[in-house]
């Protein structure tokens, strides 16, 4: 049985002149996914999102958004998006912009709901171009969700958001996912995405080098390791330890890399190592991201 994908990328390449930005990209996006697209600056993340939205045409290959070419406006009825940078036109008030964007969709969400959700009540009568950077981001996010889309594309959505607004956004995303909808986002705040993403795509030099769950990506990047660090009053020896992968010693502050932190602590106690200020840090998505970026 053929699966009903929201978005399909088949053998997509994108060149700017002679520069190859995206290389043979193949991916499918289904309903009820939260997908994080990771990659260093210049990896091709924004170009990928623009092609998904029909704002850029691939050099070769085929993209289908809800079964249609994304350049066809009908394919975009069920999508919402927030670009990385947005400047609103001079002279228009916040409320007028929300009303204008809402008018494009057949079954939009109520304006009041979006205004309350993104804390825009106090800015409705202000000109959108005069809002602060964070307020503009909040407005842009409200616009992404107002059409009640089945998939939302968010390009670096938390850039410029204050802590409170960032918290609101993650709540909205979780809520949206619980309704069976799909979120596709790029972000640098990896620890946050780690909590909500169901799937991570890692883009490097225009190629998807990993398409995994968070756990899968950590495994792939060899990031099941933990760092156990502590201070030691004397020079310590770890001879005979079974669970240590490597040791870093900086002025008797030791960092031990291990795959089993519990067993390592047991060994430290068993060998009477006089440790203090013990810290255990599990490798997270950020480490995986860094390892993959380095090609480790």
């Amino acid at each position: 049985m053929k699966q009903d994908f929201i978005l399909e990328f088949k053998n997509i390449t994108k060149n700017y002149g002679k520069i190859n930005i995206i290389k043979n990209l193949n991916l499918n996006i289904s309903h009820n996914e939260v997908i994080g697209l990771l990659g260093v600056n210049g990896a091709g993340k924004t170009t990928t999102i623009k092609m998904m939205l029909g704002q850029e045409i691939p050099t070769t290959g085929k993209i289908k958004l809800f079964g249609k070419n994304p350049t066809n406006p009908e394919s975009r009825i069920h999508i919402g998006s927030t670009p990385q940078n947005i400047e609103f036109p001079e002279g228009l008030k916040t409320l007028e912009i929300i009303q204008f964007v809402q008018a494009h969709y057949p079954n939009p969400l109520p304006i009041q709901e979006m205004v309350e959700k993104f804390g825009l009540t106090n800015f409705l009568e202000l000109k959108a171009s005069k809002l602060s950077g964070g307020q503009k981001r909040r407005l842009a996010l409200a616009l992404a969700f107002i059409g009640n889309p089945k998939i939302v594309f968010l390009d670096e959505p938390t850039t410029g958001l204050d802590v409170e607004a960032r918290k609101i956004l993650w709540e909205v995303i979780k809520d949206y996912k619980n309704k069976g909808k799909t979120i596709f986002l790029t972000t640098h705040y990896l620890e946050e995405i780690e909590q909500i993403a169901t799937r991570i795509l890692f883009l490097q030099k225009g190629e998807i080098i990993a398409d995994e769950s968070v756990e899968g990506l950590q495994k792939l990047a060899n990031s099941t390791q933990s760092k156990v660090s502590f201070d030691c009053g004397t020079e310590c020896s770890f001879e005979g330890f079974q669970t240590i992968d490597s040791v870093i010693n900086k002025n008797r502050n030791y960092t031990l890399i291990t795959k089993n932190s519990d067993a390592l602590i047991y060994e430290l106690v068993k060998h009477n190592i006089p440790f203090s200020n013990l810290q255990i840090k599990k490798e997270n998505l950020e480490s995986a991201f860094l390892n993959l970026s380095k090609g480790e």
Binding site: G54, Q55, P73, E74, I77, S81, P83, I86, H104
Partner: peptide, 17 residues
């Protein structure tokens, strides 16, 4: 002046011909 603005690019992602 408007055609290359971020706003114009955003409008192109809306479901409108």
């Amino acid at each position: 002046q408007e055609k290359n603005s971020e706003w114009a690019k955003y409008l192109r992602s809306l479901p409108v011909g």
